[in-house]
C-alpha cells in the first residue's frame, strides 16, 4: 500500500553506522590503552601497589 522503504533503510543504516562508530571507538581506545600499558611495562615501570607488595614480601 505505502512504500517507505527509504525511511526504513535510512533508520537501519543510521543505527548501523552510529553503532559501528561507537564500537570502533571502543576498540581503538582499547588498543591504544593496551599498547601504552605494554610499553610502560616493558620500560620496567610498575604500579605503586605492585612495588608495595614486593617490598612487603
Amino acid at each position: 500500500m505505502m512504500s517507505h522503504t527509504g525511511f526504513v533503510l535510512a533508520s537501519y543504516g543510521a543505527a548501523i553506522i552510529v553503532l559501528a562508530a561507537l564500537i570502533g571507538w571502543i576498540f581503538i581506545d582499547q588498543r591504544s590503552q593496551r599498547q601504552a600499558l605494554q610499553e610502560l611495562e616493558s620500560r620496567g615501570v610498575r604500579r605503586r601497589s605492585e612495588t608495595k607488595m614486593d617490598n612487603a614480601s
Partner: peptide, 29 residues
C-alpha cells in the same frame, strides 16, 4: 550489546587510569 560495550568501556577506563598512574610513577622515578 549494551552490556558488552559497557564492560569493554569499563575495562578501557580501568586501563586508562592504570596508564596515568604508571606514567606518574615513571615521571617521579
Amino acid at each position: 550489546l549494551f552490556f558488552t560495550l559497557h564492560m569493554m568501556a569499563m575495562r578501557n577506563e580501568i586501563w586508562r587510569r592504570r596508564v596515568t598512574a604508571m606514567r606518574r610513577v615513571a615521571a617521579r622515578s
